[in-house]
Nucleic acid binder design. Sequence first.
DNA 1: TCCGGTTGTAAGCAGCTGCTTACAAAACTA
DNA 2: TAGTTTTGTAAGCAGCTGCTTACAACCGGA
Lengths: 187, 187
Amino acid sequence: MTAQPGRRRDAAATRAALLDAAAALFAERGFDRTTVRDIAGQAEVNQALLFRYFGSKEALFEAVVARNGREHLATTPPERLFSASLRGMLAPEGPRNRTLETYLRSSGSDGVGATLRQEIGEEYARVLATLTDAPDAGLRADLALAWLMGIALVREVTGKEPLASADPEHVSELVLTAVRTLLERSE
Amino acid sequence: MTAQPGRRRDAAATRAALLDAAAALFAERGFDRTTVRDIAGQAEVNQALLFRYFGSKEALFEAVVARNGREHLATTPPERLFSASLRGMLAPEGPRNRTLETYLRSSGSDGVGATLRQEIGEEYARVLATLTDAPDAGLRADLALAWLMGIALVREVTGKEPLASADPEHVSELVLTAVRTLLERSE
DNA sequence: TCCGGTTGTAAGCAGCTGCTTACAAAACTA
DNA sequence: TAGTTTTGTAAGCAGCTGCTTACAACCGGA
């Protein structure tokens, strides 16, 4: 049907298609509930190639998180990191930040990319911790990060109203006001 | 070994053992990563009985959440609900509140007890919303609930330091201060 | 033109999953 | 005691999972 015997031969494109498909599916369903057949299917690629190019499902997951997780962390000034992450998460469309979504939807999985997840969490928290002079800056940063994760969880996973369809600006205002009691230089 | 041919015959005890085992395992691993064989094994019960007494794994899950989810909601005065949930979650041992843990560890699963989860979220939020006179009380309550979930997520699932082993009183103080900008009558 | 490596394909394996069935032992009822 | 119902057991099925293998088609360089 779709593919002639021996479709367009392009290893790089195949790899990229797998990465894209995996990123979308892991964000939607989490690690456990995404099968390698799903990923290969969405990428329109034979599933054996997934193993040729990435070795295992777990390694693919790590490649996805590594690719998507760090970019906007590296390109956002500290004072705006919290509000940018929050708004990026609340935005109804466009380049949503699906890293947090992927992270939490896969949070049932124990060893899977645990190290990587922890690293990304560390990086976020380290940046946020620069926004206060309090001696417990690290803890404050963790609490702020936890709130982001919680909001993502309740919105995306549970779909709880009124949060799920609340005005992003309104939510940001409430959250940022409260967070400023933790991180005085935020926003 | 353990069971003579035809062990102690007691349907109620068997049901209860299954419920207890399921509650513990769902909280630890979430719905997907807990198998019916695990549950039956921990309950020291033949796995076929799980289906006799509950019909399906999903129905068992709903029974667990229904049993554990509502009690401390019903027995805690509104002003203390947030701080009690927070402290119950942070407590190193004793009767921890595993409802939130169960909730979030299973949050990858789509249809599974989704209705029930939503109901419990609604009940929590409805109570919390009574703690402010602001017109957006519902949204404020959702955000507070989201924070609880996020803290549970980062602590229990990710194990992120310094949050994971921070002093419960210290954490409570920071969080409650910030939450009071949302719900003025909390605590 | 042939040849070696690369890319893609089809089929299948072993293990686990939720769930069912056929049956035996115990308990209750008469 | 005899018959019925309840409780527990052992075995297995059909489907899905991650992953592997054997092989065909394609490509660039000699």
